[in-house]
């Protein structure tokens, strides 16, 4: 009974929306709004006959590489900046400036330096993902409890133990919040980086479909992107729940 209710809560609205879409377009002869049945019909053929490995996997791979790099950079720099007031005072104005630049505008610039290959796309993803992670880490590190810091000092915890047992776990709720924001930024930038110049990838393929008037296929690409987003955020939630399991349940 309880499981049933949960299932309805979870899937009720998506099912309703799909049904609405289905009904609204069932007799559609508008070229740009094909019936959902047609879109669904071409989904398998569009994505699972070669494009999955040719386009989807490279896209997701670049996303994960960029996101991973942003995590390492953001947390690493964030811990350093949050721990050293001098560093923070020096870097803060510069960070504010770079953070304010919308990452898509970097794509043409990065293309000049890094070409149009994988490196450029990963750099674009990093350049957007890193900010929420970095800034949240700085705040998280600064917010580590004073009494806990004193305790660590009194018991003479070394640098390593302070980092691993005090600072990182203490900042982890904030780091997770930043990482979650970073992930959604990353998905956006994954697509954008492929729309400018690319030879494969999800963003590239969707634009390609649109330009060749393969409208149902274009819609499948958008749906697939949505599904990938949902899947990644589910994985993120599981990881977060494990990482923060020490918090009061």
């Amino acid at each position: 009974m309880n499981a049933l209710r949960k299932g309805v809560q979870l899937l009720g609205l998506p099912v309703l929306l799909i049904a609405l879409w289905w009904v609204a377009t069932v007799n559609s002869d508008n070229f740009f709004w094909p019936p959902l049945s047609e879109i669904a019909g071409t989904f398998r053929e569009t994505w699972f006959t070669g494009r999955f490995t040719a386009d989807v996997l490279p896209s997701v791979g670049r996303l994960l590489a960029g996101y991973g790099l942003a995590l390492v950079l953001g947390v690493g720099l964030g811990v350093a900046i949050g721990s050293l007031p001098v560093l923070r005072a020096v870097l803060e104005p510069v960070l504010e400036f770079f953070r304010a630049i919308p990452p898509p505008v970097l794509v043409p610039v990065l293309m000049l330096f890094a070409g149009i290959g994988t490196t450029m796309k990963i750099l674009v993803i990093v350049s957007g993902c890193v900010w929420p992670i970095l800034l949240n880490t700085v705040e998280g590190v600064r917010a580590v409890d004073e009494v806990l810091r004193d305790t660590a000092r009194c018991y003479r915890l070394g640098r390593r133990a302070r980092l691993l047992r005090l600072v990182l776990p203490g900042a982890s709720p904030q780091i997770c919040a930043g990482a979650r924001q970073g992930l959604s930024v990353g998905i956006i930038l994954m697509v954008i980086s492929e729309m400018f110049a690319a030879g494969n990838g999800l963003g590239f393929t969707v634009v390609q479909f649109q330009r060749t008037f393969a409208v149902p296929q274009m819609w499948t690409g958008i749906i697939l992107l949505g599904l990938i987003g949902v899947l990644l955020s589910l994985i993120f939630r599981v990881a977060e729940a494990r990482l923060l399991s020490w918090r009061n349940e």
Partner: peptide
């Protein structure tokens, strides 16, 4: 000059002096 070895401190704020993740 800094926290010396051989000294232990018990703080008033017990809830904040224990590591909640341990």
């Amino acid at each position: 000059v800094g926290p010396p070895p051989g000294m232990a401190v018990v703080f008033q704020e017990y809830g904040r002096s224990l590591f909640p993740w341990l």
